[in-house]
Simulated assay, not measured.
Amino acid sequence: MRRLATGLLLFMGLVFVVSRIFVPQYPFLSFVGAFAEAAMVGALADWFAITALFRSPFGLPIPHTAIIPRNKDRIGESLSDFLEHNFMTPEIIRDELHSIDFAGIAAGWLAHPDNSAAISRQVIKGIPTMLRVIEDDDVRQFMQNRLTAALDNVRFAHVLAEVMSLLVARQHHQKLFDHLIGIADRALEHNKPYIRWKIHESSPRWLPKAIDQKLYERLLEALQGTLAEMKEDDSEWRMRFHLATDELIAQLESSPEYGAKIDSVVRDVLGHPLFRNYLIDIWHDIKSRLEADAASEDSQMVARLNRALNAFSDELLGDAAIQHKLNQWIRTVVGEAIVQRREMIADLVTRVIHKWDAETISHKLELHVGKDLQYIRINGTLVGGMVGLVLHVISLAL
């Protein structure tokens, strides 16, 4: 495009010379000469203007030339300021993010078997590396110290009270009560011969066996009746168990003695060498199993994670409400993150442009926009010629 524009300028120069030579013989060539003369002026003016953007024409130190190389840093600062206040505003970011279905895109991508399998393999492949980091003595000591410091601030009685309150709220303590009654019922059924023998062993030798048997049957009947009564939903036993549970929760929450005892017991257990050695043995066993499974071609962890990802993607694709909530959350988080850090992002643009070489950036910009700028030179040649022709006509008319 540069050669085309320059060639057009040279062509106008040739036309101007030829028209001036032959105008005495052909007067109409004065119009052609006027067009060519003005076209050269327009072409030269636009050439100077465009060249002055990127370099000094002919290398001469003419003021206000080589604008981009000389003002690179200022242009970078202006560009970053423009980006910060015109592109990364809350309104623009919100509008742009609103049209993106983050949850749907992610779910659709995960729903493809190859993608979910690749994610699963990559996640599981990183487990051995993570385990090696945790096994490092410095990291292990750091984590142990942090865990000890964290446990020192934990009030185990309150934690236990909160757990028990949650279980009571969901009626799990009643399930425990039923389970305990079931254990007692099965134990009674399983030990009937022993109970019969124990009664007979404890009875006087002169007491008839029929009476022993009757006593055994009455005792068994009483025990079974009591257990059956305890199983009823509105039994007094069940109510007493509920009240005892509530009282225990209240004691755990308010009693300093309970709290001190439980904290002491828990810390004694956690700090005992046998318990620590046991945990270390368990950890090494788990670690070896995880590493072996992660290295296996038929890894169970990969298969399970893959199934979980597939199930998650299917559930997410079928639940528009959850997609909407996830999209709202992602848009809020991403939007706030961008807006809060827009000054940092804009500063990055400034720092990068400051590091660029002036000549290099000038050359790159010229390559990107130079084609359009050469069109300006061509248009300037043609428009200048038309203006010169009009002015020549007016001068003849006057």
Rank of each mutant, 00 (worst) to 15 (best):
A107S: 11
E253K: 15
A337D: 11
L14P: 08
I322N: 11
V168F: 01
L398G: 15
R341P: 04
V334L: 13
L348N: 13
L243C: 04
V23W: 13
I183Q: 13
A39E: 00
L60C: 10
W329A: 10
L166R: 12
S120T: 06
K209F: 10
F16K: 05
A43C: 12
I394Y: 11
I353W: 00
V352S: 13
A321D: 09
N145Q: 14
E343W: 08
R186I: 03
T245M: 07
D46T: 00
R205Y: 12
R289A: 11
A308G: 11
V390R: 06
D319V: 01
D298V: 07
A292R: 11
L243T: 10
R140C: 07
A45V: 05
M40R: 07
F28W: 12
I280Q: 14
S299I: 04
F35R: 06
V17Y: 10
V369W: 06
F241E: 00
A52F: 02
L317A: 10
V393R: 09
F177N: 02
H173P: 04
Q300T: 08
H200K: 03
E343V: 08
P61C: 04
E315G: 03
G384D: 04
M130S: 11
M164H: 10
R304V: 11
L305W: 02
S254Q: 15
E366L: 01
